[in-house]
Simulated scan of single mutants.
Amino acid sequence: MSKPSYRGRFAPSPTGPLHFGSLVAAVASYADARHQHGEWLVRIEDVDQTRTRSGAEDRILQAIEAFGMSIDGTLVRQSERTALYDQALDTLRSNSLAYPCDCSRKTIAAIAHVGREGPIYPGTCRLRPPTNAIDVAWRVALDESTVQFTDRIIGDLQQHLASDVGDFVVRRIDRFTAYQLAVVVDDFEQGITDVVRGADLLWSTPRQIWLQRQLGYPTPNYAHVPLVYAANGQKLSKSDAAHPVDEDNPLPTLLAAWQHLGQTRPTARLRNGNDFWTWAIENWRLTSVPVDRKHIDD
């Protein structure tokens, strides 16, 4: 049996229950996958075990089920995939694309320029390797190329990683694999063709594409949906108790997520979540999703 031409995924972190902002991303990725008759996988992004909260994974999976989204394939947990991440790092190291770094955050902050997502690492350990290669992080050795890609919602984007980000970390000093490398390996291993996620990860995309190219992986299609912001202008977090989702009455929350995604409001009377998805999958239009200007212009 051949694989579907579309394979999407939702990848929550088990740091708390599903909130409305996360649900919006889930609804968008699920609707896009089902509209294109594709598969929809769920991956638990628990690579950073220091942030995992007991019971959070179960609560997230219960919420996904309560809101009528069915999962294809086997549930994947990053905490069970360490060997795959080690292999990818070994490939980067063997190709002289990663090097050890023992610089502290305090040291970097004192000497680095501040970029879009924090201090831009100036390459200190690339020029002067640390003498102790045990208690170190691992960074990639970027080239001078510009990464260009087309977001299905936003359009054409580009970033010069060396000047805008600097050599970024792929293995932390506490030996946890960094998000950028883990997600690239996971998407490849799961055969993900399309990534629909929140706009807060928009500028992670050039780093992930760069890693894909170095590791010989294909690049999925990307689409970044607008975030949900609290009254203070900050992105909703799982600690924001003001925006829970009501699993006992899913339809109003699904309709609110649908509206946030710029979709046409149903004209037919919907009685429950099943009615919603029957209608929504047919009527999903990615071209109607608004652009989150905040994460382009910041």
Score class of each variant (00 low, 15 high):
residue 257 A to P: 06
residue 186 D to Q: 07
residue 99 Y to W: 00
residue 143 D to H: 05
residue 289 V to G: 06
residue 74 T to M: 03
residue 132 N to M: 07
residue 47 V to N: 04
residue 284 W to K: 11
residue 227 L to T: 04
residue 258 W to V: 13
residue 111 I to T: 09
residue 155 G to A: 02
residue 222 Y to F: 14
residue 98 A to L: 04
residue 2 S to R: 10
residue 133 A to F: 03
residue 146 T to G: 01
residue 247 E to Q: 14
residue 184 V to W: 10
residue 154 I to S: 13
residue 262 G to N: 11
residue 80 E to S: 09
residue 214 Q to F: 03
residue 227 L to Y: 03
residue 281 I to K: 15
residue 204 S to A: 12
residue 162 A to R: 15
residue 278 T to A: 11
residue 46 D to R: 09
residue 169 V to N: 11
residue 61 L to Y: 06
residue 296 I to V: 15
residue 277 W to P: 04
residue 259 Q to W: 01
residue 94 S to D: 15
residue 104 S to W: 08
residue 64 I to H: 00
residue 14 P to F: 05
residue 263 Q to C: 13
residue 210 W to V: 07
residue 36 Q to R: 14
residue 268 A to K: 09
residue 255 L to P: 05
residue 109 A to M: 04
residue 265 R to C: 12
residue 16 G to R: 07
residue 239 S to I: 01
residue 216 G to R: 12
residue 89 L to A: 08
residue 79 S to K: 06
residue 187 D to G: 02
residue 109 A to H: 05
residue 188 F to A: 13
residue 122 P to A: 11
residue 8 G to K: 02
residue 22 S to G: 15
residue 8 G to D: 03
residue 15 T to G: 11
residue 215 L to N: 06
residue 42 V to P: 00
residue 246 D to K: 08
residue 283 N to F: 12
residue 221 N to V: 10
residue 175 R to Q: 15
residue 15 T to A: 11
